[in-house]
Design a protein around this nucleic acid. Structure first.
Lengths: 202, 202, 202, 202
DNA sequence: GATGAATGAGTATTCATTCAT
DNA sequence: TATGAATGAATACTCATTCAT
């Protein structure tokens, strides 16, 4: 989208819609959707309101687009991991680890995700939830597959396990700091390990 | 006024500050702090704005008071459980189960908690976080005690385990429904079990 | 007015109405009538709103009473000076000097006077202006007497001279500071001298 | 909008910011800054609140701008008079007379000036006072020049003389009425004469 | 594509005053 | 005498959005 620079590319900066999304993400994460004014976003992006409304139908659209990007990314990655040819426990561990790493790498999106979904319009909220549900179902099916294959405890409710684990993931935004003592991979390794131990047959 | 029970007793109209807190809790959980107007709160409580500002210094104060109630309740319960004479794994399981049950019983507070903390004034946010941290530390010390006693895996980072588990707990508000298929105790049992399995020595 | 202390006078502090007037004067001078809330006044006086409304019909009444005190004081003093047996120029000089000194001694009242008169109710404003006019007329008649006696220039409009001089007096509140380089008497001496030179026959 | 003259020209509707300033000046003079609501100003100017806040950051800004206009005008005029080649007493008389005339011609500004300065924000107050002081200093230097040249009494404190005279000027707003018996020039003549007599060597 | 002036409905908060006790 | 809970109307200011240019 708009990666081609018109003319000689004399502006040097990214295309307007990208810049708007980037600044909106940063600001929504920093002070919340409702507390960020359209004025602040356009100022940060160095454009005017008219420009924003030229590319996005509403402030709400901007947020929706942010959600879209996150969900597309996560879905792609989970699909790729689930499709591998390795044993289920290994795939679950990798999926868990991967979602932690990407959640930390896109910490602003992670913060926005579970904090601002209620500020989307009802229809957009429904759309986002549906996509999210599909993602959770794919994750759940990994657990079910592991139960069927006798790797994981059969008495667990797979959906509860998914909610249990994604609660942890979504909360990364509330405590993780890039300049803290733990790297994304260290957290990912431990979270993945905790999940695997919690579901594995003793 | 009305703190004395007129006539035959439980007349339904609680004292004004209590009514305001109750309605604010409900509304904040339903549509978020920023999207709930002071006008809506006082209308729901059947009083005027002046009455609200007679008891609370600001909308922000109302939210702070809601946090205070939750934190006091949870701290008391954890203190009581941690002080028991039973083996650590049992105490950890009970603490985990208990926090799930009370989080579900006060689901509105749970929803507000992790969603609205950023809308408190910086100082109040600091106060709430400090109290929250104390709660987490008490929980963490149970894990450390279990590690020292050889019950739990020694290679785990207790603080990460706490963040892992409380992520799950705080997210109850996003998916649990009282009219769903699971009772509070069923969820509590399974979450507690998942936690214990994730930390126990194999 | 409430100068009698009920009972043994065990409170030690001044009577309530006096305390209210004193604090109101201070606050009105400091931040203006409209910017001073009734709540602030009663807090400063250490009483409750009910008490204020027991003694004064309204906030506006409080202001009116402050004006009353000033006007009574100034009128009394001018009457005394005007009634003396000395030559007119001397009496005018003394009257001018005296009003400067008392304006400085009651600088808070001076500040309030010319700044807050518009915030009185129309009727009270009318009453204050009438009393003020009587004061000015008395002052003016000193000038007229001096003109008739040949001391002062006959071509001056006595009313303009009065407005000229009292402008200077009322403005003391905007620039005079007790901890500045000039004593009240020094200012009074110079202002009186300027007035006399401005009206005297060459 | 409307800075270009639509159709046949002078349609009566000035540009929005100008109209807002004009109505605000009138209303602030009539009922005081605190007693004039933003709503009243925009209604008088025939625009909406949004339009006002598009041009002015706050109600306070509006007042500041009014002060700015007055101060710029007065400073320019005094500079021009002081720079003339005539004897000091003549220049002082003209400066005094001129400030009276312009104060009367802009009587609303004069009323606002000494009544509302305390309602500006502290920083803006400071800025206005600084500019005012510069104006007073220029006026004072005329007096000093006259003393040095032997025209004026050497024992007078020039700063006190300035405060004495400008008290009179600022108070014009409290008593002068356009439909009264005196023209602006008559008052100016007499005030100027009183000032000159008060400072001149006998 | 992009501007920026203007809208209009909405927000939290303040405050003088009343009145049952 | 005095309290303090409650009122209700008013206040300055914000903001997403529109639209003529």
């Amino acid at each position: 989208m708009a990666r081609t620079v018109t003319g000689g590319g004399e502006s040097g900066t990214a295309a307007v819609p990208e810049r708007l999304l980037a600044e909106a993400t940063r600001l929504f994460a920093e002070r919340g959707y409702d507390r960020t004014s359209v004025q602040e976003i356009v100022e940060a992006a160095g454009v005017t309101k008219g420009a924003l409304y030229h590319y996005f139908g509403s402030k709400d659209d901007l947020l929706h687009e942010i959600y879209g990007r996150v969900l597309r990314l996560q879905t792609e990655r989970l699909d790729a991991i689930a499709a591998r040819d390795t044993p289920v426990p290994e795939r679950l561990a990798e999926a868990a680890s991967d979602v932690v790493v990407t959640s930390i790498q896109n910490l602003d999106d992670t913060k926005i995700f579970f904090r601002s979904i209620h500020q989307l319009s009802p229809e957009k909220q429904k759309a986002v939830r549906a996509e999210r549900r599909r993602y959770h179902e794919k994750f759940r099916s990994l657990i079910e597959e592991g139960q069927a294959a006798g790797h994981f405890r059969a008495d667990l409710r797979p959906d509860l396990v998914v909610d249990f684990f994604f609660g942890s993931v979504h909360h990364l935004g509330t405590w993780y700091h890039a300049d803290g003592p733990l790297s994304a991979h260290e957290v990912a390794g431990e979270f993945s390990d905790l999940l695997l131990h919690s579901v594995r047959r003793p």
